[in-house]
C-alpha cells in the first residue's frame, strides 16, 4: 500500500515540479523577499520587523498559491486528459491515489517553501539578525499545515467541477476560514432563525484557519507557546482527515 502511495506522490511531485507556473511563482516570491531588504531600509528602525513580516507573507502567499491553483488542476487534469484511464484499472485503491496526490503536492509545497525560507533566513543572517529563526520556522510549518488543508479542499473540489470553479470555491473556503471573528459577529447580529443557523453551520463546519496564523506574534518577537501549537496542529490534522474522508466518499462513487 505504502509503495503505491509513494509512487503516486513521487509522480505528482515530479509532474508539478516540472510545471513552469510553479517556478514563475517562486521567482516572484523570492523577488518579494529580496524587496523586503529595501522596505526594511526605509522603515526607520523597524527593519527586522519589516523583513520578517514581508518575508513570511511572501512565503505564505506562495504556499496558498500552490495549494489552491495547482491543487485545483490536479484531479481535473487527470479526468479531463484521461490519464486516470491508465491509473484506475491498475491494482490501486482510490484512497491511495488521493493520499498520494496530496502527499506529492505537499512535498512540492515543502520544496518551494524551503527555498523561500532559506532566502528569508539568508537575508536575516546578512542583516545580523539571529534570534528569530525558530519562531519563523514554527510560523512557516503552521502555514504549511494550512496549505495541506487547502490542498485537500482543492482535490475535493477539482474532482467535482472545473479548475476555475474549484479555485473559486477553495478561495471562498480560505476566506471564510480566516473570517471566524466576523462570522461570530454576524451570528450575534442576526434576528432571523434561518440566517442564524446557516451562519452557525458555516462557523462550525468550516475550519478556523486563523488558528494556524502565528505570523503576527513572530513579527513582534513573541515566542509561540509550544503546547498551544501542538493543539493547533492536532486540530489542523483532524480537519485534514475529515476532508480526506469526504474526498474519499466522493471518489468512491465517481465513474470515469
Amino acid at each position: 500500500m505504502m509503495k503505491r502511495i509513494l509512487a503516486i506522490a513521487r509522480n505528482t511531485f515530479r509532474e508539478t515540479l516540472r510545471d513552469r507556473i510553479l517556478w514563475s511563482a517562486l521567482v516572484v516570491v523570492l523577488a518579494l523577499i529580496a524587496f523586503s531588504l529595501f522596505v526594511g531600509s526605509v522603515s526607520l528602525g523597524q527593519d527586522t520587523r519589516m523583513i520578517i513580516d514581508f518575508g513570511l507573507a511572501a512565503i505564505y502567499i506562495l504556499q496558498i498559491f500552490v495549494a489552491i491553483f495547482i491543487g485545483s488542476m490536479l484531479i481535473f487534469k487527470e479526468v479531463e486528459r484521461k490519464t486516470f484511464y491508465l491509473l484506475i484499472p491498475k491494482p490501486i485503491y482510490r484512497e491511495e491515489i488521493i493520499i498520494g496526490k496530496c502527499l506529492g503536492l505537499t512535498l512540492t509545497t515543502l520544496v518551494v517553501t524551503s527555498l523561500s525560507a532559506l532566502a528569508l533566513c539568508g537575508i536575516l543572517f546578512i542583516n545580523d539578525i539571529h534570534t528569530f529563526y525558530v519562531p519563523i520556522l514554527f510560523a512557516i510549518l503552521l502555514s504549511l499545515l494550512e496549505s495541506v488543508i487547502l490542498i485537500m479542499v482543492s482535490i475535493l473540489f477539482s474532482g467535482l467541477t472545473s479548475p476555475i470553479l474549484s479555485a473559486v470555491y477553495t478561495v471562498a473556503f480560505f476566506l471564510i476560514g480566516h473570517s471566524g471573528a466576523i462570522l461570530r459577529e454576524l451570528i450575534a447580529k442576526q434576528t432571523e432563525a434561518f440566517a442564524t443557523y446557516s451562519l452557525q453551520a458555516a462557523y462550525y463546519l468550516l475550519p478556523n484557519l486563523e488558528k494556524l496564523n502565528i505570523r503576527n506574534e513572530v513579527v513582534h518577537g513573541a515566542m509561540p507557546d509550544v503546547s498551544a501549537m501542538f493543539i493547533t496542529v492536532l486540530y489542523g490534522a483532524t480537519y485534514a482527515v475529515f476532508l480526506f474522508m469526504l474526498t474519499r466518499a466522493m471518489f468512491a462513487k465517481k465513474e470515469f
Partner: peptide
C-alpha cells in the same frame, strides 16, 4: 491513451512498475 506529458517514457513505465 493520455500520459503525464512532462515525464519521460521510462519514468512513466517505472511509475506503473511501482504500482504493480
Amino acid at each position: 491513451p493520455a500520459f503525464y506529458l512532462y515525464l519521460t517514457g521510462r519514468e512513466f513505465l517505472q511509475f506503473i512498475c511501482d504500482i504493480f
